[in-house]
Design a protein around this nucleic acid. Sequence first.
DNA 1: TTGTAAGCGTTATCAA
DNA 2: TTGATAACGCTTACAA
Lengths: 342, 342
Amino acid sequence: MPITLKDIAQKTGYSVTTISRALGGYSDVNEQTRQHILHTAEQMGYHPNLVARTLKSQRAHTIGIVTPATAASADSDFFSVLLRGVGYVAARHHYDILLSGQMDEADEMRVYRHLVGGKRVDGIVVARTIPDDPRIAYLKKSGLPFVVSGRSDAAQGDDFPYIDADNRLGLAMLVTHFIDYGHQHIGLILPPAKYMFTHQREEGYRDALREHGLNYSPSYVRHASAMDQAGGYEAAGELLAAHPNLTAIIGGTDLIALGVMQALNERGIAVGAGVAVGGFDDIPVAQYATPPLTTIRQPVFEIGKMLAGMLIKIINDESPAETQLLIQPELVVRNSSGEKRK
Amino acid sequence: MPITLKDIAQKTGYSVTTISRALGGYSDVNEQTRQHILHTAEQMGYHPNLVARTLKSQRAHTIGIVTPATAASADSDFFSVLLRGVGYVAARHHYDILLSGQMDEADEMRVYRHLVGGKRVDGIVVARTIPDDPRIAYLKKSGLPFVVSGRSDAAQGDDFPYIDADNRLGLAMLVTHFIDYGHQHIGLILPPAKYMFTHQREEGYRDALREHGLNYSPSYVRHASAMDQAGGYEAAGELLAAHPNLTAIIGGTDLIALGVMQALNERGIAVGAGVAVGGFDDIPVAQYATPPLTTIRQPVFEIGKMLAGMLIKIINDESPAETQLLIQPELVVRNSSGEKRK
DNA sequence: TTGTAAGCGTTATCAA
DNA sequence: TTGATAACGCTTACAA
């Protein structure tokens, strides 16, 4: 049913080789011949078989991404926006995106091998790093170009191309903001410890406290069981019970912060005036929360675009100007901060 | 660098054919031989080249989706969630997803030809239909399996596999709810007319009014210039200026409804008590709006899952039980409805 | 039980 | 300027 070079060859009387060259725009084809071939191909509705072309050329013009097992959950917003950014730039370079899904987390390395070994992609985008990420170790060995959203282990130098929001700085900015607003007892509810950015945000918390001469109390810090509102709600309940003296609580993500707000509401504590709340990410919901949520904005869509640009350059041996980028996030103050105290 | 069947053949002394059969689990291979080959393949780190396999077998185990040009905009939530649903089921059937992006809307048919002609996908999911959708006409001709989120033209029978939320019913439910709450003058701000679901929702509006013996006034209906908050805001301004007697306004999507709320706030009209507002879609933001937004919930993630299941069945000639599904949406009453009037 | 050979549709090398 | 021929890595008749 689909038209091949052979079909055009038969119809025009030329060899497959000549058809290929005419369509490929090579100079060593008679102009008349080319016109005839182009015209015939057009009217026959020819479209190259990209599978065959990829097999031969070893170029797929495709970027691979593994969708996280959590993709069905609330957190998936981050991934969706990143993907959109990658897709935006990919389309403009005529690259496609191959999404390979995992059934569960244990499945993840299998999917990476599937993607790398399958030869259908020229490069891979890795998202949501964990400390000492095995995917990165594997990709380094594989030789396939890849870029990473996030870092994996600063101690080991992170010697691979990445773009990361400066999570440490972001959380430090938020803590500094609350200190500036007169808070001395600031709680923190972190996402699960497995994620790399969790540690970076925690570090920012400690750094900012130290910098302002405040005491760092480990018991002010808790991990939510999951990176969603329910996790934040639960952890906030525990934290509030243990430390009624807290005047501000930071959620390690906006969803966690929404859970914190929920817990406060339930206890009749006014968000802002009673206990100030801050989040991280600036998801769309943040500005619609009641009160609107103070948070740290990171440009996820932009990061996706930059990742794709970087990866495509690497694929084409163009060596991008920067291969390790730390993006400065932005403090967005809203009413969940309450009034400045003094 | 990557290991091929040939490499294993050389190492073991068997022919490529035997290697292929041993790995493929065929019965006509000596058990000892198979063990030896399996073991060697394993320790050499063999992974099949899926490009070659696809070229030979004409099966890509991949589902194609074209990302809309609007994917960078606020509306893209719908697409992201649908994609997640498709991906969820695809992964469980060991199918991958090939995303092909368009640069702009004019580019769209080119991308579909690219996807169909390229032979890298076994089927395609189409989203966000328009009346008389040319993509559907093209896919029908192409012979490639496809499923559609949405219908295209009821008059022509929509003779293709689809799953659609019952938009007509959904909006009728919403109108009926407002009528039940005592409203007689209900405005409607629709998304752009190019989308199929816009017309279905408008139909639901008219049907419900008629059913309850209320007059349908075309001037109560406006189209937003875009399917986002700004579009809703602008159109609401015009509508309110022209018809100060309206006591309820429905946004054709939640984002439009948020724009309506913004316009009301600006005029000092209380959402709910002053003018009731309703939306459609139940995006996450809806429940966080102030006041929370009454809306119609459609199970987009579920629809994505069902679409993938249906498509994979069609690909495998399993003829799914249902190929044309209308999903009943759900009315979610929140405070933007205000109190029941009498 | 194993091997030879052809073919999927393309591109590249080499002659003519 | 054009055409045979081989090759990309795999699967599958068909032989042996």
